[in-house]
Amino acid sequence: MPQEPADAVDGVAEAGLPTRQELDLNQFLPYRLNRLADRISDELERMYAQRYELNVAQWRVLAWLSHCDDLTAKKVCTYTNMDKARVSRAVQALVDRGLVSRTPSVRDQRVHELHLTGDGAELLSRLIPQAQDWEAELVATLSVGEYRDLLNAMGKLERQLERMG
């Protein structure tokens, strides 16, 4: 670790210049979480792409459709934190493959409701257990308590971000 000059005071070096600020990204939570999330998404996308010809955005749309009866592209954007263009491309690809249907809402013709087709439901019946098995293998290194604590800590951070934002 570099040494500061002995007579540096309050972050100002002897020549009157501020000392250089350093940030160890390996100890910076936002960086570590983002890096971990990217690595997890990359590994999952590799599995989805090889086995099912899906990308992460398409998988997220299908996953939300697996347990939401009333879903629109706008809600997918909100739930997944993906931008409108990415969701739109994912939905269109799923519609083109016959995995998702898109129908105008009876309440608002400007809005389209998304639904799994039979083929989409069949695909998810194979994909979801594989995704759950993959997740189980990933977290196998954690004890039950560590896993619970991780989920609790993530929830606390999410709530804090809501308060801060």
Rank of each mutant, 00 (worst) to 15 (best):
L54V: 10
L54N: 09
L54Y: 01
N55I: 06
V56S: 12
A57W: 03
A57S: 07
Q58R: 13
Q58M: 14
Q58L: 09
Q58E: 15
Q58I: 09
Q58N: 12
W59C: 08
W59L: 12
W59F: 07
R60F: 07
R60D: 10
V61I: 08
V61W: 04
L62P: 00
W64T: 02
L65D: 01
S66P: 06
S66Q: 08
S66H: 13
H67A: 11
H67P: 02
H67M: 11
D69C: 04
D70T: 09
D70Y: 12
D70W: 11
D70F: 04
L71P: 00
T72C: 03
T72V: 09
A73K: 11
A73S: 14
K74N: 08
K75C: 12
K75A: 15
V76F: 08
V76A: 12
T78I: 15
T78E: 15
T80A: 12
T80N: 01
N81H: 10
N81Y: 02
M82L: 07
D83H: 15
D83E: 15
K84G: 06
A85L: 14
A85H: 14
R86C: 11
R86L: 08
R86P: 05
R86V: 02
R86G: 08
V87H: 07
V87S: 07
R89G: 09
R89V: 14
A90E: 03
V91G: 01
Q92M: 14
Q92S: 13
A93C: 00
L94P: 06
V95Q: 09
